[in-house]
Amino acid sequence: MLEARLEQSSVLKKVVDAIKDLVQDCNFDCNDSGIQLQAMDNSHVALVAMHLKTEGFALYRCDRNIALGINLVSLQKVLRAAQNEDVMTLKAEDSPDALSLVFENSENDRISEYDLKLMDIDQEHLGIPETEYGATVKMPSAEFQRICRDLSLLSESVAIEATKEGIKFSCTGDIGKGAVTLRQNPNVEKPELGTTIELQEPVALTFSLKYLVNFCKASGLSNTVTISLSNEVPLLIEYEMEHGYVRFYLAPKIGD
């Protein structure tokens, strides 16, 4: 059986907020390394991979591998009943038809108990190869979100170019064009506010802004985001948590 306790409900709430617009139904795979999820969007353009590691749980017990088939819209309805600071306990049997969720406030005088019906989801898992990326950029997640939102008002797609000068996001649309260039600028006192660029080779790729704006819904998970790019391979956008991550992969646009 599974028994997993999070000190703060906000962790799972933020994870679900981050991915619910990309995927609807997905398996939460529970095993002795924690809770993992891998799912593609309907059009097979993007893939999300999430891992909440056991170290992030106040209590974690999972004797066997258990797949929790969850509709994320339904899960979000239940999670709405949890306050951010509530302790959350997830419980499921070995072959569960429901997931039990218990939310307790810090004063220990309120206990909320919910059951979420589970589904059978036949999900394909993709092997993600180890990749040496041509460029890896670490920057404030809020800044990346702002750039994607601003450019999405002008165009459907964005060109991302990483060179030794910096990383440039540019787009062209019906009303005009726009570009934002970030130069390497490490912040010694507050590293989370700085931008660092590791460059092996120059990279230039084009991506759909609709997806990037969607990924930015994970900004609440981390102050920083890591963007990894190589020519002609999917973009990797990673939000690292204290004990886990949410990673998004996005297939580039092709041809010209």
Binding site: H44, L126, I254
Partner: peptide
């Protein structure tokens, strides 16, 4: 015009 790539052409099924 540009087309949208498919993630499954980069990552193989396990």
């Amino acid at each position: 015009a540009t087309g949208q790539g498919n993630i499954m052409s980069f990552f193989q099924k396990k």
